[in-house]
Amino acid sequence: MISSSNFTYQPNEHEAEKASSGYLMSLVALIVGLPIPIINLFATFFFYVANKNGTYFVRWHTTQALLSQLSLVFINSYGFWWTISIIFGDESVSNNYISYLAVVLIFNITEFIATIYSAVQTRKGIHIHWWLYGDITDIICKPGNGQNSI
């Protein structure tokens, strides 16, 4: 699901740190944002915007960190509003609800582990390519002019 490969160039120390921070940002936001899932998307998005003009390595990884949040935002939001409708609305706790929460938990833990791994590896300057999100990032994120280094 996650593979490491050679990036088009060897990122320097500063780039590796910034790219790694992209994942850490999504990680922290994931924890904070669990009760209100849209928060993690916002936090990662702002970090992405802040680094939009960064080097290719930084941009690539902040983009992948942002994209990897998207599916969780939908999944977590649905679970969040389902819970709200159980507490305040007409819904009741059901087998479907508990099953959904269990799957949401599994997906969140997977994302959590994958994000920590990516942050650590990226910090070492190793290029981490996620399944699906890495492919989309390849399409979105192209090397810019003179942005191969700081």
Partner: peptide, 24 residues
Amino acid sequence: IVFRLLALVGFFFASLWAVNQVNW
């Protein structure tokens, strides 16, 4: 990408179905 996206969505629903087989 489309194939992988569908596979991810399919995996999510398959997981949901499998977990739902347990009487929680």
